[in-house]
Amino acid sequence: MNIFRLAGDMTHLLSILVLLLKIYATKSCSGVSRKTQELYAIVFLARYLDLFTDFISVYNTFMKIVFIASSLAIVWCIRVHPMVKRSYDKDLDTFRHYLLVAASFLLALFLHEKFTFLEIFWAFSIYLEAVAILPQLVLLQRSGNVDNLTGQYVFFLGAYRGLYILNWIYRYLTEPRFTRWIACVSGVVQTALYADFFYYYFISWKNNSKLKLPA
């Protein structure tokens, strides 16, 4: 494990903590896309099916369980917690996320490393993760104003993706035969989706003003 990968995992973890903190502290999920959160829960459940078949390290196993548990907890809060549920604005969160699920699964049926149950679900989770942020970005753009914690949540998620790219470059340079087309191409696509958000995030940071996305 290199420093970029570790930093990427930590910013990923941090993003989830920021989101949980926001929901817990404000008892509100305003500005948060339930659809994106549900997609992430599906992503983790589909990808970590290997929790039962492959052991990589204690670190890996621990993080997988944390990601599955935290993503389910967030979805639970938005769907079930009486106060949080009330703050969910479903009229803003209208992205047809099932289309992303269907398209990702279809793509995984054709593009995978091996035609096995685990590998197809692994590829599916990679494709779905690449586009899972879309409902969140659309919601932020629609509501215009982004509260600080939600902005930081998306910022850390984007940082995690950027650090994973550095991790792949490092591994490509240091490990013989490091080729992972599916993960790397999807990862670059995923990171590119944040470009617009990052642009406005840095502008607001530079001007010390509130983050606003143009309609």
Binding site: R5, D9, W122, Y164
Partner: peptide
């Protein structure tokens, strides 16, 4: 050779 561990990332 040793089979590489495929999915060692998260």
């Amino acid at each position: 050779g040793v089979e590489r561990k495929y999915h060692d990332e998260l």
